[in-house]
Design a binder for these strands. Structure first.
Lengths: 198, 198
DNA sequence: CCAAAAAAATAAGGTAGATTAATAAAGTTG
DNA sequence: CAACTTTATTAATCTACCTTATTTTTTTGG
């Protein structure tokens, strides 16, 4: 089996049990696709037609406000699903952009194919329920932490939890994700470094 | 059929199609329960053992930080599911409290009963997937709005979207939900009222 | 390997929202 | 309805974080 497809099948098998037959049946519904750095998987205003699983690479999901400021909602890395779920489920124009931060390989499943898959292997409903439940729980904690913690605490917690993201995306994007300006993040980093020395 | 159960069945039927048999089979798995104002459906430190659907009443889900400050994560009203999903799925101690703000009637389904239900009617996996997807999409927008909008804008948007909650819970809880202090919310309201007059 | 662009750092001045503390209003209960 | 508790207002002071502007460093690509 193609190693990218295998990666997804393994991801599924870690959460539910697929028979050999089911695994084989799923494969033809999958669509492998490569994006270059900077390219968009979903653009604001377009309708999101696919569920997207990241095989390799790194993406960001962001929102442009009235003043043209970017607000990063989420990063996506290897082995994560990423989408504008609202656009995908209601087939309405996306409010978020999903852009590749490096060359990125993904597996996509169109909405029609997804419905076929759910009939073929209803267990997949559970798989996606578990995935989104996890994402929801993380979002809830993030809401709370945004209120309960200072920017410095949130930054330290972020680089602790996602060191690979922290090291490989520009700082101004981390600032945007944390909800602070790049200038303020820069000054926090200065503080943190001088704290570490003394 | 008991009218509370009917309320839940209708809620399900609005998203998936249940046969008459399936509806009848679901009923015995449901557990009707009443709480008084102030009582806890889930307490921090306890394990959440049930999925909980609000038939009537109003609840809040909140987190206590190190300094003992309350941070409201969500409100729950009629026809909403509410839970500490992380605690429920992993059967670990809850980080959030879920407390009734008025006398509240709920339908609960224990984890074991839920597994039986999923075998009985696998469609329910889809129902819960749809429910949580919606909640996730709302959370994402809330994260963005917390960054893109001022406290005043968030407050106005909140009372516009949830007038029934805004009118029936104390202001200091709305402040907590919005991530601001009650004093600052009070001053925002003063501004808003004088804006309206001039 | 150099020029241009993108990202990061620095610094001064400004503001949204926090903190503290005191008072007033509204709800609750015996 | 009086005493008490909870909730809301007001106001002064304070600070975490923003804005704007300039400079330095790093990355990119021809």
């Amino acid at each position: 089996m193609n190693s990218s497809f295998l990666k997804l099948i393994n991801h599924i098998n870690r959460r539910i049990i697929l028979t050999e037959d089911e695994q084989q049946a799923i494969i033809p519904h999958l669509n492998l696709r490569s994006y270059l750095k900077g390219q968009y998987i979903v653009q604001e205003g377009d309708v999101s037609r696919n569920e997207t699983f990241i095989v390799s690479g790194k993406v960001r999901s962001f929102y442009l406000d009235d003043k043209g400021n970017e607000h990063i909602v989420a990063f996506g890395i290897e082995d994560w699903w990423i989408n504008d779920i609202c656009s995908y489920t209601t087939q309405t124009p996306a409010e978020f952009n999903i852009q590749c931060l490096e060359p990125t390989e993904v597996i996509q499943i169109s909405r029609d194919k997804m419905e076929e898959l759910f009939i073929l292997a209803p267990k997949l409903e559970r798989y996606f329920r578990l995935i989104i439940q996890k994402a929801y729980a993380n979002m809830s904690k993030r809401i709370v932490n945004n209120h309960a913690q200072s920017a410095k605490e949130r930054y330290l917690s972020f680089i602790g939890t996602y060191p690979d993201i922290a090291n490989r995306v520009p700082q101004y994007m981390i600032a945007s994700y944390l909800g602070i300006t790049k200038e303020f993040l820069s000054s926090l980093r200065k503080q943190i470094h001088s704290d570490a020395k003394s």
